[in-house]
Simulated assay, not measured.
Amino acid sequence: MAKTILRVRLDSVAFYLNEVSVGVANSGKRYALSRTSQHSGNKDGWVRVNSTECKALSEIVAEADLFKACSDLFASKKLRPHVQHGGIRGMAGKWEGEAFPARATKRA
């Protein structure tokens, strides 16, 4: 489960910095910076953030400066699309089709 470290908003755009996983032994934590627009109606995507950039963002106090830093960092990295992996029922498991009827999955 992702842990939100910080959130900053300006008008209808919001940035979220999340700790997404711990990774394998001794590899450190992994972070993602996500952007939403239209008051979280559109999920614009996410970028990977390293621990140094995460620490630099968390040290910024002024919200306007933090939004500018998040915007610059988001623009400078490779954008990855937001993908909805599971619906209300969650991810399909090996039990799919036994406990519940099999569902159609859509592939992009």
Rank of each mutant, 00 (worst) to 15 (best):
G41Y: 07
S58R: 07
E96G: 06
K77I: 14
E63W: 04
D72M: 08
K94W: 13
I88T: 14
V61M: 06
W46Q: 02
L66H: 00
N42R: 10
T52M: 12
N18R: 09
R80S: 11
E53A: 08
S71L: 12
A32Q: 15
S27K: 10
H82I: 11
A64F: 07
H39K: 13
I88F: 12
H85P: 06
F74C: 03
S58F: 06
V47S: 02
G45Y: 04
T52W: 15
R80W: 13
L57R: 01
V61K: 15
C70D: 04
D72H: 11
R89P: 04
S37I: 06
G90C: 05
A14M: 09
R9H: 09
T36E: 11
W95G: 04
A14E: 09
V83Q: 11
K78T: 12
S58G: 03
W95I: 08
V20Q: 04
L73G: 03
L66R: 00
K68Y: 04
L66M: 05
T36S: 07
S12G: 09
K77N: 09
A25P: 07
A75D: 12
G28K: 05
R35I: 01
F74I: 01
N42Y: 13
R48F: 11
L33E: 01
A75G: 03
S12D: 09
V49M: 05
